[in-house]
């Protein structure tokens, strides 16, 4: 049988690419202006590099609807993000789709703490910016393992009334966790109306635990494994308040105090073995190609 070519896809050009920190990339990608115009804080997109690539959910850190572009920040972890990281300006990406998920409810709450851990800061920055724009007093808390891995410090400072930094090794700001700083603020007596937090699942779990006692409303943006990201497969299901929710259509933002983080953490590890295998094979091939 004649193998007819697959669906013709318009390609998305990589307009700008920068290395922000070791293995952390910023990438501006060309998209349809009609799509860029629709993306709101809290929503995400899915990107697929090419025929063999996974569908990768990412939150745009900014969009340019006039130019028709969006900017994402990602960290090389598995094979897909490693291949994404290897792209150069002028290279193309096969698919970009979105916006997906529900936007964050942006309004005037009063005092809002925005917590960003690692590359989660890329997701929290547009939310903090919008919340500041809505008239909130915004307190930013940024965390990373070490100073070198901190991103968007200037940007967060520009949209926050106060900004705090925490690094695990104390190379910048508080030595310790973002939750240490967070606890100090909420236990220090300032009335906080909302906490938004994005980062590794383990950090979001710690944030939920830190704010549970004072019962401060806390919204986290969850990052489970997804496939289609349009509500079709249920890979991203999470337990929230004892009910199964699909993060891609019901979230990604959920009430942190209701999320079953242990289940999320366990599900995030589901393919770690496969991810390692795929990465090893890829790296072997890269070395073999270089030697050839």
């Amino acid at each position: 049988m004649r193998n007819i070519c697959k669906e013709v896809m318009p390609l998305h050009e990589v307009i700008r690419k920068e290395l922000l920190a070791p293995k952390i990339h910023l990438m501006e990608v060309e998209v349809a202006p009609r799509m860029a115009a629709k993306i709101l804080p809290g929503q995400f997109i899915v990107l697929r590099l090419d025929e063999r690539g996974e569908r990768i959910p990412l939150t745009p850190v900014s969009v340019n609807e006039k130019k028709g572009s969006l900017t994402v920040i990602f960290q090389e972890a598995g094979l897909s993000t490693k291949r994404l990281g290897a792209l150069k300006e002028g290279d193309t990406i096969s698919d970009v789709v979105g916006p997906l998920g529900r936007p964050t409810d942006i309004k005037r709450y009063g005092v809002v703490i925005a917590v960003g851990g690692g590359i989660g800061t890329a997701c929290i920055y547009p939310e903090a910016k919008a919340l500041k724009g809505a008239g909130n007093r915004v307190i930013g808390i940024l965390g990373a393992r070490t100073a070198e891995l901190l991103i968007l410090g200037e940007e967060m400072r520009s949209v926050s009334d106060e900004t705090y930094i925490a690094t695990d090794d104390g190379t910048k700001g508080h030595k310790g966790l973002v939750t240490d700083v967070l606890k100090e603020i909420i236990e220090g007596g300032e009335k906080v109306d909302l906490i938004v937090a994005v980062g590794p699942a383990i950090m979001m779990k710690a944030v939920a635990d830190a704010t549970r006692k004072q019962n401060v409303k806390t919204i986290v943006s969850l990052n489970p494994i997804m496939v289609d990201a349009t509500g079709m497969c249920g890979a991203c299901r999470v337990m929230v308040g004892g009910e199964t929710k699909f993060t891609c259509v019901d979230g990604p933002g959920f009430d942190a105090h209701l999320v079953d983080f242990d289940n999320l953490l366990s599900r995030l590890k589901m393919y770690s073995e496969e991810e390692r295998r795929a990465l090893e094979l890829y790296e072997r091939n890269v070395v073999a190609d270089a030697l050839r």
């Binding site: 063999r52 690539g53 996974e54 569908r55 094979l79 897909s80 496939v227 589901m270 393919y271 496969e274 991810e275 295998r277 795929a278 094979l281 890829y282």
Partner: peptide
């Protein structure tokens, strides 16, 4: 066709 195709299944 994993890992040639990058999405795994268990």
């Amino acid at each position: 066709r994993f890992p040639e195709y990058e999405t795994p299944v268990k």
